[in-house]
Amino acid sequence: MTALLPTRHEEAWRYADLAALESVWPVVPETIVLAPGEQGTRTLVIEGAAVHDITITLGEGAQFAFHVLNAAKGYGRVALRVTLARGSRFHLGAAQIAGGEQTVEIVTEVIHAEPDAVSRQVVRQVLAGQATGNYLGRVVVDRGAVGTDGEQSIRAMLLDRTATANARPELEIFADDVKCAHGCAIGELDANALFYLASRGIPPISAKALMLQAFLAEAFIGAADEERLTAAALAALETVL
């Protein structure tokens, strides 16, 4: 039986491009399991339309780093459900770039099921035209998951006032003695900095590219293929500037 298309009433699909979703529905879910102590990495570069639904389970002391460049021409969505066992570590570094009327989104649920796990989520978005970029991210700290260390850093840069960023970092904490932080900022490129670059002879588009490249680079820090991601991000930037 084919699963029913989600509706906007479901929180995780609230800002989705449901019309575009229809063409790729149903989505085949993917599962990644890391055994205790195992280490893994994954890089996902989305250039066409794509919807990913990935469940990641980390065993005790396992480590997993996930890097995403979501520069979909069309609807691009990455949904992650991550469960962390004792002492495991999960890192998400994601950049989303969109222009036109595209919707790109990252939806995460990170569950600290046991004590002393660490999660880091760094999401940077560059949105132009009438594009929409979403981050819906929930960090859940289960009862007894003491010593949890969770962090979400979400920033979006709007190149046009007609672009939209929805950022919703959420924390659900059912344990004491945990460290959870989230930061969220949506802004525009600093006009002072752009004039400073121009005053040295750098044309406006190059000045913007220089600043945005630096902004997005924060999402790729520590990635095994940082250079490839940076180059792909720059190419995607050029199409929205």
């Binding site: 900095a193 670059l197 600043m211």
Partner: peptide, 10 residues
């Protein structure tokens, strides 16, 4: 510039 501008990451 009287107040040179900081540009993080560049």
């Amino acid at each position: 510039f009287q107040y040179p501008v900081e540009i993080p990451g560049v």
